[in-house]
Simulated assay, not measured.
Amino acid sequence: MSVRVDRVVTSGTFSLDGGTWDVDNNVWVIGDEEECVVIDAAHDAKAIVEAVAGRRVLAVLLTHAHDDHIGAAGDLGAATGAPSYLHPDDRMLWDRVHAFAPDHELADGDVFDVGGVRLQTLHTPGHAPGACCFYSEELEAVFTGDTLFQGGPGATGRSFSDFPTIVESIRGKVLTLPAATVVHTGHGNDTTVGAEAPDLAAWIARGH
């Protein structure tokens, strides 16, 4: 298979509810030598464009609309000509950052083809109302944004987030994937579905 997955780590800040934190974000570029898609537009459009390396960008898929994941969306779209996709339930978060609209709405089940593989959209609310993951059976990988990390679910202590909702999303949409599926996260290290299943049970028992 000629498709590869490249990770770009960009750095900046995340702001919500009156607080600001320094963060490093994972941006994922999936494709072959001719075309690719980008997952998340975090902080630094120039670094992402360098990873694209002249390929045609079919889409910029946004896992959710916290500012650290969408801040570079305008510059990235201008540089690549690629349309942005966001679930409409996160539009109120998007509008806090940008005066323009995302190009398209995401819906659960939407499929994106790139380089002979498919990425299926999984709507996984909880960290944010419009949070989505992107699953590729061919790559045996799921790109979870801030829904699932190594060690458990994403944070739910801020506005528009909910712990029972994220647990149900992970149970119903992510842990149903094959155990060997690699979890490419929005921050930090990769993990697998099989590695996270028992950790999630412990988080539920503690009530987060």
Rank of each mutant, 00 (worst) to 15 (best):
A79S: 13
K173W: 09
L122G: 00
I70T: 04
I204A: 09
G81A: 15
G194M: 08
H208K: 08
D22M: 02
V27E: 10
V60K: 01
V167K: 07
L58S: 14
E50D: 14
P164E: 06
G145W: 06
Y85D: 06
P83I: 05
V49S: 03
T10R: 04
S2A: 05
A41S: 15
M1Y: 04
T192M: 07
Q150L: 13
G116H: 05
V111Y: 00
H87P: 12
L106F: 00
V37Y: 00
G116R: 09
T13D: 08
S15N: 11
T20S: 15
A205N: 07
L93P: 04
P129N: 03
H69F: 13
T124R: 10
L61F: 08
W94R: 08
H69S: 11
F163C: 09
H98N: 07
A45I: 01
L175Q: 08
A73H: 02
N189D: 12
G152W: 07
L177K: 04
F160K: 03
F149N: 01
L177P: 12
T80W: 08
P125K: 06
L177C: 11
C133M: 03
G81R: 14
G126I: 02
G157K: 08
G157M: 04
V193L: 05
V174W: 06
H66W: 10
T80D: 10
A180N: 07
G194V: 09
K173D: 13
M1S: 09
L61C: 10
I39T: 06
T192G: 09
A51V: 11
N26R: 02
W28N: 00
L122W: 01
V111C: 01
D113M: 05
G19C: 09
